[in-house]
Simulated scan of single mutants.
Amino acid sequence: MITGASSGIGLAFAHALAARGADLILVARSGDKLNSLARELVHCHGILARALVADLTESGAASDVHARASALGLTPNIVINNAGFATHGHFDTLSLERQLDEISLNCRAVVELTHAALPAMLNQGEGSIINVASTAALQPLPYMAIYGATKAFVLSFSEALWQEYRARGVRVLAVCPGATDTAFFDVVGAAEAGVGTRMATDTVVNASLQALDRGQSHVVPGGANRMLGLLPRILPRQTILQIVANMLRPRHQGSM
């Protein structure tokens, strides 16, 4: 089961796992995109692919989509919590409702779907949960404060579960990609942010699946990203905040 499967990293996970012969449950809000993707994957790889449309910002939606899959006899043994979005701008000027939806999708939906999926995995004595966090989890993000905080939650939550369940056959991995070649920054209204070269989605997915196979608790794809991730451990926190603020400061008003 892949959330946010219709684009970006979620789409790359769908193609990579289909190529490995995995049957897929594709979850996103766009029914047209999901159904088109499901048909493509079935045609190209001969797998089973089922599209389940859901708005995971809604309370209970993630639990419900797992129940819908189970009712179809499609209880997943791999769950990839990829769906998420960010807001960019001064915290006080951003829509509170939008930021609360951001928390719901980035955090609550991850918790709900993980909680729904774990019992069957534990009964089987095996299973995998991949939660897509971000290098944003490694330090606070001025002007993207809610996004950074939600991804820090995902990283902490995932690593705690890694320790809780690894002896019971369930692998949990937090993926912390840096800037990736998706529409993320365009959608969030931060296309001008100084985030450097963007990594290919396939590179992120391959690093993630390799880390899962090795039983890691988290992975930061890319050597440059791993080096940058070490800076908060070396430099004073206020220095890091100033650097990040200079990268992400809105260049114009009217950010999302």
Rank of each mutant, 00 (worst) to 15 (best):
T3C: 08
T3E: 13
T3A: 04
G4Q: 00
S7K: 08
I9V: 15
L11V: 03
A12I: 06
F13W: 03
H15V: 01
L17R: 14
A18H: 00
A18N: 03
R20Q: 13
A28M: 04
A28Y: 09
R29A: 08
R29D: 08
R29H: 12
K33G: 09
S36K: 14
A38K: 00
A38H: 04
R39P: 01
R39V: 00
E40W: 05
E40F: 05
L41M: 12
H43Q: 12
H43G: 15
G46T: 11
G46E: 02
L48T: 15
R50A: 14
L52W: 10
A54L: 03
A54K: 05
A54D: 01
E58F: 08
E58R: 14
A62N: 08
S63L: 11
H66F: 15
A71L: 14
A71G: 10
A71T: 09
L74H: 09
T75Q: 07
N77P: 03
I78W: 15
V79C: 11
V79I: 13
I80A: 08
N81P: 06
A83M: 02
A83K: 07
A83V: 06
G84L: 00
A86E: 04
A86R: 07
T87W: 02
T93E: 15
T93P: 00
L94F: 09
L100D: 12
L105S: 05
L105D: 14
N106W: 01
C107S: 06
C107E: 05
R108G: 05
V110F: 04
V111E: 04
A120W: 01
N123F: 12
G125N: 02
A136W: 00
A137I: 00
Q139S: 11
L141E: 15
P142F: 08
P142A: 06
M144N: 04
A145L: 09
I146N: 14
Y147K: 02
A149F: 10
A149T: 02
A149R: 03
K151N: 00
A152S: 08
V154Y: 00
S156L: 04
E159S: 09
A160F: 10
Q163W: 12
E164W: 11
R166C: 11
L173P: 02
V175G: 03
P177Q: 00
G178K: 05
A179N: 06
T180G: 09
D181C: 06
T182V: 07
F184D: 06
F185C: 08
D186L: 04
V187F: 07
V187P: 13
A190P: 01
A190N: 04
A190H: 11
A191R: 11
D202M: 01
N206E: 14
L212S: 03
D213G: 07
Q216H: 12
Q216S: 13
Q216L: 13
Q216E: 12
S217A: 15
H218C: 12
V220D: 01
V220I: 09
G222T: 01
N225H: 10
R226P: 02
L228F: 13
G229W: 02
R233Y: 12
R237W: 15
I240L: 11
L241D: 15
Q242T: 09
Q242D: 15
I243W: 01
I243R: 04
M247W: 13
H252W: 11
Q253G: 15
Q253Y: 13
G254D: 11
G254M: 06
S255G: 13
